[in-house]
Simulated assay, not measured.
Amino acid sequence: MLPEDKQALTIAKRTLKNLNFVYESKQKGNDVEEFTQLLNSMLGMIISLREEYFKGRVVAWEVLEQYKLKKIDIKAKMPDTASPNLTTHTTFSQLIANIRHGFSHNCFLLVGNKDNVISGITIWNIPFGKENATRNRCWEVTMTEEELKGLATLFVSFISKDLGEI
């Protein structure tokens, strides 16, 4: 095991610990922005840890099942007339890579509910060199806050198990 692997895992665990603290604070009535913390946590974990840990690696959903981790069913948007080139992700590592690319290229929008509270996020990818326009999207997903939080937890749990930590 490389020292970098331990460092990445340590950062991921601490990020998740801080995220859980913010959610607990919100439940206690404190004025915290839990979705903002979730988004910042995902930005940090997905962008840096994907580069350090997942880049060039294929992690099938079956690997998560072998580790007794529950798959989160996040469905990519299917092609339509506005975005005819949309594709889907078929592996856990593809989902992580697609989210990473969307975040790092600022290809995301916050989704609000009827009370104007942030309730989720839409993330998409555009091929290199193309204009950031709906017609050029090649992957898109909308996730609720719960799905995004579940993915953060799954991501850390997977790395922990894969490195033999738990």
Results as ranks from 00 to 15, higher is better:
69 L>Y: 01
71 K>I: 07
93 S>I: 09
69 L>P: 06
85 N>H: 08
78 M>D: 10
54 F>P: 02
114 K>D: 08
38 L>W: 04
142 T>G: 05
58 V>H: 10
90 T>S: 14
131 E>D: 12
64 L>D: 05
28 K>F: 14
73 D>K: 02
95 L>F: 06
126 I>V: 15
139 W>N: 03
75 K>Y: 00
37 Q>W: 10
66 Q>D: 13
58 V>T: 15
30 N>I: 13
50 R>P: 00
99 I>V: 10
143 M>Q: 05
46 I>G: 00
29 G>W: 14
126 I>S: 13
136 N>W: 09
140 E>Q: 14
89 H>I: 03
59 V>M: 04
59 V>D: 02
39 L>Y: 10
51 E>F: 00
89 H>E: 14
57 R>C: 03
134 T>G: 02
134 T>C: 11
46 I>T: 09
114 K>A: 08
52 E>V: 03
60 A>E: 14
28 K>Q: 14
101 H>P: 04
40 N>I: 06
45 M>Q: 03
113 N>Q: 05
125 N>I: 05
37 Q>A: 14
96 I>P: 05
101 H>S: 13
51 E>V: 01
46 I>K: 00
102 G>S: 08
98 N>Q: 06
48 S>K: 05
110 L>H: 07
63 V>L: 10
103 F>C: 08
103 F>H: 05
144 T>V: 11
84 P>V: 11
109 L>A: 12
86 L>V: 06
113 N>L: 06
144 T>E: 01
136 N>M: 10
140 E>P: 05
44 G>H: 02
68 K>C: 07
76 A>P: 12
62 E>G: 06
55 K>N: 03
93 S>C: 07
45 M>D: 00
92 F>C: 04
116 N>I: 13
129 G>V: 08
108 F>N: 09
